[in-house]
């Protein structure tokens, strides 16, 4: 979005160019620079995007052509049977459910907790506020290490337990700092007048803080959701003996590392076209299709959420 100021600037610049035309004659080295500049950005952008496109066209093209390596730039013989056939890949749907549910539940609880705690730590009258806030913030800067963390989780009974995906993520110090800073930028008068009217802390939080904080909460929600969807380590380390709790990322990692014939993965009692399954199994198509399913939520959500992502990194500049 262009701000009014930017529009004005642009107009002024155009005006300036028109009146000072002779000054803007392009020199040869400027042209060469521009060409290389454009070229670099075009190539890098293609490098960033092409792999996803390549994966996608290979999952919707004719499987025998894919197998011969003939689908490189555009799809041929478009069909979506591969995606339908995924239904009969063992455990995949279960992992999908685990990933989706942890993303939704984990993010919702994290956002609620961050908003509430962020609000509480702005209250100067709290008993021992400074100490508690510092204790929360310090946790960002150290960790005991992977093995002590693992031993702690197993002591708490959070190994091979779905709750291990949800509970540890509820208190997120960085997000708490973001919300706190945001609340401190809201005019105090709103809260004060509500307090005078006899509103309780909970009422103020629900009726004033929550609605006003929505922009920042949207930002942390999106980062939280992406983090949850992508998380792989907790599944790898904590769920060692519960394959039914593996996340989609973990499942994909396992499939990618398996030998090319994945026929053992298929459940026999499937009602999908068996020829599709056969052509899919014998190689890379199934791996590509599972990869695509894993990356698709991010690719779909991304364009809509981009402005939140970008405001997110700018918030990184603030401090507690």
């Amino acid at each position: 979005m262009k701000t009014a100021q930017e529009k004005l600037d642009e107009r002024a610049e155009r005006q300036y160019r028109r009146t000072h035309k002779e000054k803007f004659v392009l020199k040869p080295r400027d042209i060469v620079f521009s060409i290389f500049n454009y070229l670099f950005f075009i190539l890098f952008t293609i490098a960033c995007f092409f792999p996803f496109y390549y994966l996608f066209i290979n999952t919707i093209s004719d499987n025998s052509l894919v197998q011969k390596g003939l689908i490189n730039f555009y799809p041929v013989g478009i069909h979506f049977d591969n995606y339908a056939a995924l239904r009969s890949v063992n455990d995949l749907f279960q992992s999908f459910l685990v990933s989706i549910s942890r993303t939704v539940i984990g993010t919702a609880l994290m956002v609620l907790a961050s908003a509430f705690v962020g609000y509480l730590v702005t209250k100067p009258e709290m008993w021992g506020r400074k100490i508690w806030y510092r204790l929360l913030v310090i946790t960002m800067y150290f960790n005991a290490g992977m093995i002590p963390w693992y031993m702690n989780m197993s002591m708490l009974g959070l190994t091979n337990n779905y709750m291990a995906y949800i509970i540890p993520g509820i208190v997120a110090p960085y997000n708490i700092i973001l919300v706190k800073t945001y609340i401190e930028s809201i005019p105090q008068e709103l809260e004060e007048s509500a307090e005078i009217d006899g509103a309780s802390y909970m009422t103020i939080f629900r009726k004033i803080i929550w609605p006003l904080c929505k922009p920042i909460l949207a930002t942390i929600a999106i980062f939280g959701a992406v983090g949850n969807w992508n998380s792989f380590q907790d599944s790898l380390i904590l769920m060692q003996s519960s394959p039914n709790l593996f996340t989609l990322q973990h499942r994909l990692y396992i499939y990618l590392n398996q030998a090319s014939n994945l026929s053992s993965l298929m459940s026999s009692s499937s009602n999908v076209n068996t020829s599709v399954i056969q052509s899919m199994l014998n190689g890379k198509v199934i791996k590509y299709t599972i990869s695509m399913v894993t990356v698709l939520p991010i690719l779909i959500v991304y364009p809509f959420m981009q402005r939140y992502f970008e405001s997110g990194i700018m918030l990184g500049a603030v401090k507690g």
Binding site: F44, T45, C48, F49, P51, F52, Y54, L55, N58, Q67, G69, V226, W229, N230, S231, F232, Q249, H250, L252, Y253, L256, G283, K284, K287, Y288, S291, T294, V295, I298, L299, Y302, P303, Q306, F309
Partner: peptide, 26 residues
């Protein structure tokens, strides 16, 4: 827009991408 997408996918997916481009039948 397009150059920030890779930041939001997990390393497993980066590996999947690498696999599709650089593996034996990539």
């Amino acid at each position: 827009t397009l150059t920030t997408i890779p930041n939001f996918i997990s390393w497993v997916l980066v590996y999947a991408v690498a696999f599709s481009i650089f593996s034996t039948d990539g």
